[in-house]
Simulated scan of single mutants.
Amino acid sequence: MGNSGGSLTTRSTGELQQLMRAAGFTGIDDTEALAEGWQVTDFADAGRRSLANLVQRTGTPAVMVSFLDSDVGFIEAATPDGSSWEGLLNRDMAESYEIPLEHFPIEPAMAGALTWAEAAGLTPDEEAIRQTLTGSALFAEELSSALLVALGIPGAT
Rank of each mutant, 00 (worst) to 15 (best):
E86C: 09
T115W: 05
E86F: 11
S145Y: 09
D29M: 07
R49K: 09
E102F: 07
L54F: 11
S136A: 15
S96Y: 12
T132M: 09
R48E: 15
Q56A: 14
G24L: 11
R91V: 00
A119L: 11
D71M: 14
A146I: 06
G27T: 02
E98V: 02
Q56E: 12
S84K: 07
H103P: 01
L8D: 05
D81H: 06
V63A: 08
R57Q: 04
T41C: 12
L138G: 10
T157L: 14
T60R: 11
M110G: 02
P61R: 02
L133H: 08
L147G: 03
L138V: 12
Q131G: 08
L133F: 09
R130P: 00
G87N: 06
N90W: 04
V65A: 09
S12L: 04
V72F: 00
L114H: 13
N53P: 05
S4Y: 08
R21P: 04
A137L: 10
P124H: 08
A156P: 13
L147Y: 13
Y97K: 15
E98T: 14
D69T: 15
D81M: 09
A35G: 01
D69Q: 15
A128M: 08
D45W: 09
R57C: 04
Q39S: 01
E36A: 14
G73Y: 08
P61C: 08
P80A: 07
A109R: 01
L16S: 04
E107W: 11
G135R: 08
L143I: 05
N53T: 07
S4E: 12
V65W: 04
E102P: 00
L51Q: 00
A109Q: 04
G87E: 02
G24D: 06
G2V: 15
F25M: 05
G112Q: 12
N3H: 12
A44I: 08
P108L: 10
T10A: 11
G155Q: 07
M110K: 05
I106H: 02
T79I: 02
A156T: 01
Q39F: 04
T9Q: 01
L147R: 06
S7A: 07
R57M: 13
S50L: 07
H103K: 10
P61M: 07
V40K: 00
A111W: 02
A35T: 11
L88I: 08
A120I: 06
A78H: 00
I153D: 03
D45P: 01
Q131A: 15
A77D: 02
S50A: 14
S12R: 00
S12E: 03
G73A: 11
E141D: 10
A113V: 07
